[in-house]
Amino acid sequence: MACAEHRKGSDMERYDIAIIGTGPAGLEAAITAKIRGKKILLVGNADLSTKVAKAHAIDNYLGLPHIAGADLAAAYQKHLDSMDIQITQDRITAVYAMGDYYALQGAGTPESGMTAYEASAVILATGVVAGKTLPGEERFLGRGVSYCATCDAALYRGKTAVVIGYGSREEAEAEFLSEVADKVYYVPVYKEEVKLNDRIEIIRKKPVEIREEKLEQGRKMSVLFEGEEAPSLLVDGVFVLREAVSPGQLVPGLETSGSHVVTDRSMACSLPGCLACGDITGTPYQYIKSAGEGNVAALSAAAYLDMKRRGEA
């Protein structure tokens, strides 16, 4: 199991700072935190940021005029290697403020299953989430709409549900749900082939709205598909499963503004010991701004840890 190496006996290893994201903000935060002698966990993509790597040319990055994205990414990697900074390849799905520390939950790999990490401070550098929510999705959250099939499956015994999956990894959640629920429908919002057990009915239509239906036999949920005048699918619950989650969903209790995290000049968020940097904090979406904020966030995290050690935080 991947999480095993982060455990010491039954007690989990506690990092000083967990940095989530491997774009310019996260990498600069990792470098600065390492220079400050902190024990860091850098979680993200071993290929760094695909957004940076694909950039044609960047013209306003200080000291590196007209650099191609791929060259900038290679320079980042060289910098990380020179400082012996490793990337833990994982996708963090939730960050819980436990009071004294942060508990991070990761998707892990199909072999390892879910992973878990702990850190005294956390830096969010996950970039900005593009996708919009479906009409009705937020309104009915917890009242027929759910983001977590593994959490809520127990409540669907003998009931019907539809899973709207935005990536093939969500198929496992539909499988899990189908072990408990009476009937599961799966709506893939992607083109790849879908592999599911034959008890799950696949619907190849584009969902456009989630509605509530008050019928004689009770309250139901429905999904309206593109081109339909009225919803054709009636279920007890709708699961919306996306690869990227909004900051407020990633860190429950965090103050957000739209798809961004609210920070002050020190990059501090509304929760003590939580900092954010890069595109997640808002526009302008510029690499040099992200890197600069990463530097500030790491220094602020270090200051927070020092205060905490002195018993002031």
Binding site: A94, Y96, M98, G99, A103, Q105, M114, C148, T150, C151, D152, A153, A154, P252
Partner: peptide, 11 residues
Amino acid sequence: WCGPCKMLGPV
């Protein structure tokens, strides 16, 4: 079997 439930417990 619910991750957020487990974290909420001690809080």
